[in-house]
Design a binder for these strands. Structure first.
Lengths: 209, 209
DNA sequence: CCAAATTGATTGACTTATCGATCAATTATG
DNA sequence: CATAATTGATCGATAAGTCAATCAATTTGG
């Protein structure tokens, strides 16, 4: 049947595309954005050079699809973490930070790819918009949670925006540390430093570790 | 005289090299690392294409010299700021943060270039080592100051390393925000968020803003 | 049920464009 | 005038994009 046919080849198509996206992440991680060649992606994915062009019209298309995939993965991971954490804003915030430093999200390879796109994003509106969108969604979610903590705890003197910006910046900065000094620094230490910060801002909610 | 001649031409040489380094920063800022061409650098510097090769044997040499220059500038700026701040560790720490968000250091263009080198650094040992060295010097300086504040204030329960890592990460993360969202976010806001953090860690020393 | 036909996937050699490097010719300088 | 600085055309290498040929899988017809 035509329907069965289409379903099968659509699956096949998605599998190949996924395979190529993962290969692209590996190659950018290994060789950097500027050093990534379609030939490298093809051999990493164990397919011939021509296949890349067959599934992604241009190199640009492949890179955009890779960024989009990473963004979707990242967003779905933190959203799921928040849902699982239940209603407590403290648990929700902890869940987001855990997600940010989970091996799936904060692997050396993926951090390297994020940095590559952030760096290139400055000159490519499509990268930039995608990153800005992601950033906004995340920022908004953290801010909502921070506001809940402030309200529930009666800490009306605390500026939710400022705390949100600080959490955000610390997370991104820790990622840079992980990228520059992967030996002297690990994900657990990063998380603990952020917990320390939250412990100072919300002493009652985030206990002294 | 040979000596006089040499002195003059050495000056000339330095001027040209400086001119080319500045042009390189502009072009990386405008077009990204991957999009930077020697022809662009030459025309930005208002010299002919051949001059680039005359003063820097290869493109690689030019890029390394650019990174080295940026690193030297950054280091000298914060060192000078610390010296000027006098003996008080609180004033010294404020001076470093001011320096980190001064227009000279944290311009959009230069932040973009830093991000470009951090991203590429993963695959190029020379970039990586240079960045790691810079990072270590800075980290050590901040840590020394933080330890002084802890000692003078008798805050023996505070972990200097953790605070240092947090300050560092917040700074780098704010830079990323400046790069991704230059409109919604500015250097003053970034500084205030860091001040807020310091106010929570050292309430007596960093007054509530 | 088997063979021919059709469709779609895959291959890698070829074309074209781009860019870094080179260098012979030209100009400026002391 | 001699030396140094500068120019930009030319060359070679590399990589993206293209495409005709091949191969595999599925469908159709006898």
């Amino acid at each position: 049947m035509a329907n069965a046919e289409k379903a099968v080849s659509a699956d096949r198509r998605d599998v190949r595309r996924q395979q190529l996206i993962e290969a692209t992440i590996s190659v950018i991680g290994r060789k950097g954005y500027a050093g990534t060649r379609l030939a490298d992606v093809a051999s990493q994915a164990k397919v011939s050079y021509g296949v890349v062009g067959f599934y992604f019209r241009t190199k640009e298309d492949l890179l955009l699809a890779t960024l989009q995939w990473l963004a979707d993965e990242y967003t779905s991971v933190w959203r799921e973490a928040v849902e699982k954490a239940g209603p407590s804003p403290v648990a929700r915030l902890r869940a987001i930070i855990d997600a940010d430093f989970s091996p799936r999200i904060a692997s050396e390879k993926k951090i390297a790819v994020w940095y590559a796109f952030w760096a290139e994003g400055r000159t490519r509106p499509k990268y930039r918009n995608l990153c800005a969108q992601l950033y906004n969604d995340y920022h908004w979610q953290v801010r909502t949670i921070v506001e809940e903590i402030i309200e529930q705890g009666g800490h009306e003197d605390i500026d939710a925006h400022q705390v949100t910006v600080a959490i955000n910046a610390m997370t991104d900065g820790m990622w840079l540390d992980l990228q520059i000094q992967p030996r002297d620094f690990d994900r657990e230490e990063a998380k603990k430093a952020i917990e320390m910060f939250l412990g100072k801002v919300f002493p009652a909610e985030f206990g002294n570790s």
